[in-house]
Simulated assay, not measured.
Amino acid sequence: MSDQAVAEKTRETMPISDRMSAVHTIAGTGTDVLGEGASASDQCIVGVDIESVLAREGLFVSTTVGISMFPMLRNRRDTIIIRPLDATSGKRLAVGDVALYRVADRYVLHRVIGVRDGWYAIRGDNCVTTEHVADKQILGRLVEFYRGTRHISCTSPWYRCYWRVWLAIWPLRLCWKQMRHSVGNVLRRFGWQGLHHEPF
């Protein structure tokens, strides 16, 4: 067995505490693997050369910044594990997968809602806008994550049920967001300043 295969097997059998402590080493970090300048709206990762980490380690482990994948991923509180997508095999993402992709100098983590020829329709779980992302922008796929210390595999029945329901109720969520936005606009016309705290 090659050294890389041994290292990979070791990572997969690590206890949670050891695996979590290895996060920052794999990401090549200091105290904050996310760097500076992350958007509050997108679930994104900046300041790290993720392509190099994926090529060298075969996985990327990090926390994220933003609320675009709420309620599944919480701002700076949960840990994601990304595996690279093997483009040479011709394998593509499927609806429901959470893709890691690059937009200029930012790395964004959003869900695939449609698969097209040469591109994907992608949207954050907590977003309204649908993005068109080319195959060449895709770097990897979320395979598991830790919500606090709770481990969640993206192949588990519970997780599959979650994203299917979440996509199915999209029209209701869209109506709610639009209604809340409209009510907020009306209230602001009368001087309401909003709630001054982080929403999540």
Rank of each mutant, 00 (worst) to 15 (best):
L34E: 04
D97F: 01
P71D: 04
G114W: 01
R102Q: 15
K177V: 15
E131A: 14
Y101C: 08
N75C: 08
I81P: 00
D32E: 13
V23I: 09
M14A: 13
E12D: 15
L109P: 03
I26G: 00
R116H: 12
G184T: 10
M20F: 05
G191Y: 04
T88M: 05
S156L: 05
L34D: 06
G28I: 09
L100A: 09
G37P: 07
L139W: 07
K9D: 07
T63A: 12
I80W: 08
W170A: 12
T88W: 01
S182I: 14
D42C: 06
G96L: 12
D49V: 07
V33I: 12
P71F: 12
T155F: 04
D97I: 02
S2W: 10
T63W: 06
N126G: 02
L93K: 03
F190K: 08
R141C: 09
T155R: 01
R11G: 02
V143E: 05
S89W: 03
V103M: 13
P199G: 06
A38K: 12
R173G: 03
V23N: 09
G148F: 10
Y107H: 15
E12T: 08
R76P: 02
I81G: 03
G114H: 04
A38D: 02
E131T: 06
L59C: 14
N75M: 02
M20N: 01
A94K: 08
V112Q: 06
W192F: 13
L187M: 15
L34A: 13
A55P: 01
E51H: 09
R56C: 05
L195G: 10
S41L: 15
G140A: 07
Y162T: 07
D32Q: 09
D18A: 13
M69N: 05
V103Q: 14
A38G: 14
E198I: 14
T10V: 14
M179H: 11
D125E: 11
I26N: 02
W192R: 14
M20P: 00
C154Y: 04
G30P: 10
V95Y: 01
Y146W: 14
R83W: 00
C44V: 14
Q43T: 11
L100W: 02
T10P: 00
A27C: 07
S156R: 00
H196Y: 07
L100T: 01
Y107I: 10
I82S: 06
M1E: 09
D125F: 07
L73V: 06
V128K: 04
L167F: 00
Q43E: 11
E57S: 06
S39E: 10
T63I: 11
I26Q: 02
G124T: 05
E12W: 04
R160C: 10
I122V: 15
F60W: 07
G90R: 03
I45R: 00
I50Q: 02
T29L: 11
S68N: 10
E12P: 03
L167N: 05
I81N: 05
S52A: 15
A38T: 04
S153G: 08
E51P: 10
S52W: 02
L139K: 04
E12A: 15
R173Y: 05
Y120P: 00
I82Q: 02
